[in-house]
Design a protein around this nucleic acid. Structure first.
Lengths: 272, 272
DNA sequence: GCATTTTTGTGAAAGTTATTGACAGTTAAT
DNA sequence: ATTAACTGTCAATAACTTTCACAAAAATGC
């Protein structure tokens, strides 16, 4: 299905720079676009879009192909484009994973929601189904989502807000995490590589490790694009987890490694 | 003939600096503006607006593009996909109060932002102007807004999320509040009546009282509709405050009572 | 005090450049 | 062989730059 750029039929004229920005943004989420998709979403002529793509190609941001363009992502590992990319990398897969995670929760449980876009989808699913739980989180966006449901009691860790994100980090979070006991931890990560879970920043990794100590059952939520080269800070080994929930794009060797380690692996699929 | 009272009612005489401020505010909310939007909302010539944008671009605040400008440090606005440029560029009472409160802050201060819609406007103004402060808040929505500004360090109190709101309450907030020391507290209230500030719920009132104890300067932000019959829980007397910021609809008797009590009263107005 | 220069902000006009959509001819893909 | 996509050109429109004139406020001179 053709995922659309979120352009309502607004009379607001779009700045050329904004249009290019949206194209790049779309590419960050989907990796590729066709000129047809762009034309139907942005309502400008093909000539203009061709010029846009050519320009972006000259800047080295995208690779031009017949009929469209591909994202040129060369510098991945240590620099994290969390601003643009993370919010919606591949929304459909993420929400499937989130639903699967929500399904595995039981009423009355105490659940920690770590920061991250996939966990956010789990929070959405929990709120939508009014599952009665006590939720604890260090992500203020997730707190807001969970707060929409009358069935969920939400507790927020105090702490420092990480620049450019919705995550709380710092000593205060670590201390609070140590003082609680939860049934389940739902968390995400930046990369999973050969059985090692890693993150880009040390303070985020520290928080994740602290949260792991506080929960009986640890469940990792990652879309399959996260099976990629490992980044700076290692968080844990997959053997320390109870379950990993991902989508059906996960590479076979990682799947076997996880199953071989005796960790439950759930593939979230579309209901049919 | 003197131009003393020669101001037409239709046009708003706006100081150049104020006009630019509004442009920046708008950009912080939406990330982009067209010159056309600005012209139709601010009623000055395109030449002037071009000069404004060029100036802001020289200051490094915005990026100039054909037909408009983009915010330089491009940050996602998480809310309000639907907007009317004209409405937002001529702000209402609450945002005027918020701007006045933001103006009174000095770089380097530690400022507590209590929960509430008027305080939220102050947070917006602080974020838009990139005032360098350390912010502490018990409202997760305000935390998100402040987090958009790279100049603001945001600290969030831990606590229980109050059902149906963005406010954190509970013992944990009270304890955290007692352990900090801030220069300024910006807070709102449900009602101000005959010199008494009141709230509808006891846990919210308890938090406000605790925050008052932690701040050297206590400033109450209330639009004039809050001068109304008092509600259940009393929070404090106006005599305990340093300043009250409101709009020009405040009743005369309350104004006199406040001034008589030696409390600074600021009326936020459109232009001067 | 008053008249003046300077400064600053503003709007309008003329000429220049950018962006856009359409069209015709050419090249690539299956 | 037959689409679909690309290249290049062109005219129309929108935006830009530069320049000038005007007004109000601030600084200056007498």
């Amino acid at each position: 299905m053709s995922a659309l750029l979120n352009v309502p039929l607004t009379a607001t004229p779009l700045l050329p720079a904004q249009r290019r920005q949206r194209i790049v943004d779309f590419l960050h989420r989907h990796g590729a676009v066709t000129l047809q998709q762009l034309a139907s979403a942005l309502h400008v002529s093909l000539s203009t879009l061709r010029r846009d793509l050519d320009g972006l190609s000259d800047e080295g941001l995208v690779d031009r192909t017949h009929g469209g363009a591909l994202l040129r992502h060369q510098q991945y590992s240590t620099f994290e484009p969390e601003f643009s990319a993370a919010l919606e990398l591949s929304p459909h897969e993420k929400s499937l994973i989130g639903m699967a995670a929500a399904n595995s929760l039981m009423p009355g449980q105490c659940v920690i929601f770590d920061s991250g876009s996939t966990v956010q989808e789990a929070a959405r699913a929990v709120a939508a189904r009014n599952i009665e739980i006590l939720a604890v989180t260090n992500d203020i966006q997730i707190a807001q989502i969970l707060g929409l449901s009358p069935a969920v009691r939400v507790h927020v860790f105090g702490g420092q807000l990480r620049a450019g994100s919705n995550t709380l980090v710092g000593d205060e979070v670590l201390a609070s995490a140590r003082s609680i006991r939860a049934d389940v931890l739902l968390f995400g990560a930046h990369a999973v590589t050969e059985g090692v879970v890693s993150e880009t920043s040390s303070d985020v990794a520290a928080v994740k490790r602290a949260l792991m100590q506080s929960a009986t059952s640890r469940r990792l939520l990652i879309d399959s694009s996260k099976f990629r080269p490992r980044v700076f800070m290692s968080v844990c080994e997959v053997t320390e987890l109870e379950e990993i929930i991902t989508d059906d794009g996960a590479p076979q060797d990682e799947i076997e490694r996880i199953r071989g380690a005796g960790v439950k692996l759930t593939i979230a699929r579309r209901a049919s």
